[in-house]
């Protein structure tokens, strides 16, 4: 983190949230500079059909991000360690918990189980992309704040992304339908009832917004 320089912010004490925002704005690299060091852009492949390059542009939260991506790199790694978007959590790295859920072309995916190389032409939205530019929370986030739906909240960004994705298909779900829609997310604190209440509140906020 010490390497991160964001000139506008150096005088202030950075809150965690400001820090994350700063990283997004500056396009800087945060906690995993080491991943970069090992990975200079290699010479072009001899042009076998379908070969890929390491320097790619991906659309994350509405911005075009140029990033050096290993062939075997997952989207969760790219988001967290290369783009500094640490709101996306890694719980299991095995498609078994949902903490890493992001939207790809509006559809919820486990970013731990997607190759970054495969989202080049697609739109990725992570939890950081929900609030508007002026910092106003997304109605779903607002619902979660209002209902205090989570305990430790490690699972929260995944749940919110799942819910936002599900609501695009079914904007007015019953409690049971929403439970099914977000059933690909686990909460270690096991507060599913409150989580559902909060997400339903968010759904209501979204319909009103």
């Amino acid at each position: 983190m010490a390497e991160m320089k964001n000139p506008e912010e150096t005088t202030k004490t950075l809150s965690r949230r400001d820090l994350i925002k700063g990283v997004i704005a500056a396009g800087a690299v945060s906690s995993a500079g080491y991943l970069f060091r090992a990975s200079g852009v290699r010479a072009q492949q001899p042009s076998a059909a379908g070969s890929v390059e390491r320097l790619v542009t991906i659309t994350v939260n509405g911005q075009q991000r140029r990033v050096d991506v290993m062939k075997q790199e997952t989207l969760a790694t790219t988001l967290r360690y290369k783009l500094g978007l640490t709101g996306t959590k890694l719980g299991c790295d095995r498609a078994e918990c949902g903490a890493c859920t992001v939207l790809i072309d509006d559809v919820p995916h486990y970013s731990c189980s997607v190759l970054t190389q495969s989202v080049r032409a697609r739109k990725v939205v992570s939890i950081e992309g929900l609030a508007s530019a002026d910092g106003k929370l997304h109605p779903m986030q607002q619902g979660v704040v209002e209902e205090q739906g989570f305990q430790c909240a490690f699972c929260m960004s995944g749940f919110i992304m799942s819910a936002v994705g599900f609501l695009k298909v079914n904007p007015k779900p019953t409690r049971t339908e929403l439970a099914h829609g977000i059933s690909g997310n686990l909460c270690r604190c096991q507060d599913y009832d409150k989580i559902l209440t909060a997400l339903l509140k968010g759904a209501e906020n979204m319909r009103r917004a």
């Binding site: 991943l35 059909a49 379908g50 070969s51 890694l90 790295d93 190389q117």
Partner: peptide
């Protein structure tokens, strides 16, 4: 399952057609 840093390296191809993939 153990969370490790990244998968071991492999060469990646993303063919656009079945023919390219079969090749």
């Amino acid at each position: 399952a153990v969370i490790r840093d990244v998968m071991p390296a492999f060469e990646l191809f993303q063919p656009a057609t079945t023919d390219d993939a079969l090749a």
